[in-house]
Nucleic acid binder design. Structure first.
Lengths: 244, 244
DNA sequence: CAGTGGTCTAGACCACGCC
DNA sequence: GCGTGGTCTAGACCACTGC
């Protein structure tokens, strides 16, 4: 068995796909996998390529390796959800089997005041876009996002894409504006719901809520987004998985 | 310049240290680094080794690479705190310049009831250790942890180590019991403080608080810890950084 | 076009776990 | 001693960037 070297996808990625398929079909958790040298022979690739593929599989939690013993299949219970990705409402709701939905409550262009200028690392007065979104799951209001992004970078952002096509904001950043999220810095804390948001979320004023504050950076360390979210405390659980 | 091949530390790790030092002393953010081939010559190592070192530096956010252009120094503002690590109260408080302190409120051995047996994946009635800890920062009570671990694995756990030596639980797991944390699964949600905890934390009953529920797994997918924490909403902020 | 990072090969030795 | 994963080398070609 060999791979196609003329494809756009590198060989080690093709190998990752092959191994994933093979594991899915033929292995149980904690089974011993083929050794690196056996994989070399089977797929006619060099050891470096095998190790590159195995590294990927290790990172996504599909396998674990033990020096002197071998490579083993990890328990996939841990593999259904993405690990180490920044928070995505849509992804989390899907993982819970709920139907996510996003409604745009506000889209406006404003001049940054002192506070938002500082948060976005811009000069006060610079134009920014404010986006207020209501997130629902199975029809139930779950959280309100207030997102602030620099107008200069995203002037042609289409509200229709967000609402009608229900595209994820980060997909639009990446696909339409080539802005890659390199780092997301999140603060999570407990708070009390404001009167305004309580009405929108359909809960009592003063109910406990989960507050999220997020700043995201591109590879050049420019800030591409600042978001404050308020989630209802009686419904919303934020889940993270850390892999080592 | 060459490296010592007889050291326990692999050459690429030595190269990582060298490059970190060099970057710290001679480079500014977004400066262009030596090319991979120049590093090869300078340190007399092969390209693979250089790339292994650069991969590490990329993962910890020290550098970023651009195909066809070069390798660049990232802004270290993002590098002071560890990225992608599971939550550690002690580490976070240190990062904020606060003095962390842990007080053991309870250490007991009990038989797991239905609930905890399920959470730890044990049979009901199995012996487990309960550990209740109060976390303070600069003398101020911040959160209460209730940790449940299987007695079979950690029967010789020393409370003195935790309290007098202020050792981190995970260091003890790793160093004294060879239990490595492979995956941490955390739920974060907003809640209301119980009467009992309100007294300990010095806040009013019914105050909003941040609740954390954590399950950690070793590489074999055995559960090594289940912890529920309650943090005061007026003081405590949970910070995470995601790197891509 | 030259220079960069991205991928790949073939072969070597070491360190660890197990019999 | 043998098989495993971990590290390392020397050399090659490709794809992308910018002049």
């Amino acid at each position: 068995m060999t791979f196609d070297y003329n494809q756009k996808q590198p060989v080690y990625e093709q190998l990752v796909d092959e191994l994933r398929k093979s594991i899915k079909e033929n292995y149980q958790p904690n089974d011993k996998l083929l050794s690196e040298r056996e994989i070399m022979k089977k797929y006619s690739v060099s050891r470096n390529t095998v190790r590159q593929a195995l590294n990927e599989l290790e990172i996504i939690g599909y396998i674990y390796r033990q020096h002197g013993k071998g490579t083993f299949v990890a328990n996939w219970a841990t593999n259904n959800s993405k690990i180490g990705d920044e928070y995505s409402f849509t992804e989390q709701m899907k993982a819970l089997g709920k139907k996510p939905e996003t409604k745009i409550l506000e889209y406006s262009i404003l001049n940054a005041n002192e506070y938002f200028a500082k948060r976005l690392n811009l000069s006060p007065g610079t134009k920014i876009i404010k986006l207020k979104r209501l997130r629902k799951a199975d029809g139930l209001p779950m959280m309100i996002d207030r997102t602030y992004i620099p107008y200069a970078k995203f002037s042609t952002l289409s509200v229709e894409d967000l609402e009608v096509n229900q595209r994820a904001l980060y997909s639009i950043f990446l696909e339409d504006f080539s802005e890659k999220v390199k780092l997301a810095d999140e603060d999570i804390y407990a708070g009390i719901c404001s009167e305004k948001d309580a009405g929108t979320l359909g809960i009592l004023v003063g109910s406990p809520c989960l507050m999220l504050r997020r700043t995201t950076y591109n590879p050049k360390n420019e800030i591409i987004e600042y978001t404050i979210s308020c989630a209802r405390g009686d419904q919303f659980v934020y889940n993270i998985k850390y892999q080592h």
